[in-house]
Design a binder for these strands. Structure first.
Lengths: 119, 119
DNA sequence: GCCTTAAACAACCAAGAGGTTGATAAAGCA
DNA sequence: TGCTTTATCAACCTCTTGGTTGTTTAAGGC
């Protein structure tokens, strides 16, 4: 599905920034506001606010309203979706390694070898 | 560690691009050359070559030499490192949810405030 | 030796992302 | 009602990135 692909795209792009990864790490210890999240960084609150918008678009975090505070919460469901995506290729690849190894050990390896390309 | 953090940074940034993710998907079915990888995309081989350089810097793929061909191989070890990073926060967060749930049920803080639009 | 092919390198360009400062809106407190 | 806090919006700047075309290197085929 394309929308799911776009969501994966947004999620990986969000985690590609070290500041956002540290925000994720901090949120894993509980919800926090923009000001609280901005403290350990040498950047302005506006910049942190932008980072949180990116994380929110990727659905990695959600925001609730508590008076004038807007605490940010982590969304573990999306994190799980990322591991699921990675695992589908990681695990397939491990299987490929085994069969490739079998090919190398049984037949003459140096010629065409695998050409496992199904497309 | 910082170097490990930089490696994580490169890996997530590499997976943040849909073209590179599709390259990963294709490589999970076996090694391939730049030309083979460039075929399904409407971009030049040079662009694909750059993408592979990015993946190589992130150590998500490796390249071997076979005459004038340079087949690209997937590196599942790095993919596993990504899932490990994600899981450390995802799993912690699941524990947090239980304690947060306890707080919400006892003190009833911020009742029913979902001013959130599911865009 | 010469020619073809695979792939990288170099220079360049347009678009986007991360950051800033300044102004604005919403919610509470005096 | 003003005043403060929290956080966003808007405009702007700089640097990176994805893409292009053109050139160059490396390896084989003739």
């Amino acid at each position: 599905m394309d929308s799911d692909d776009a969501l994966l795209d947004a999620a990986f792009a969000a985690l590609a920034d070290p500041v956002r990864r540290r925000i994720i790490a901090r949120l894993s210890r509980g919800p926090a506001t923009v000001n609280e999240l901005a403290e350990p960084f040498a950047i302005t609150k506006q910049a942190v606010s932008k980072h949180i918008q990116v994380l929110e678009q990727a659905q990695l975090v959600t925001r609730t309203r508590d008076a004038q505070r807007r605490p940010v919460h982590l969304n573990p469901v999306r994190l799980e979706a990322l591991t699921a995506w990675i695992d589908q290729y990681r695990l397939v690849r491990e299987g490929q390694f085994r069969s490739l190894d079998a090919v190398l050990h049984s037949s003459a390896a140096a010629s065409g070898t695998q050409a496992k390309d199904p497309s």
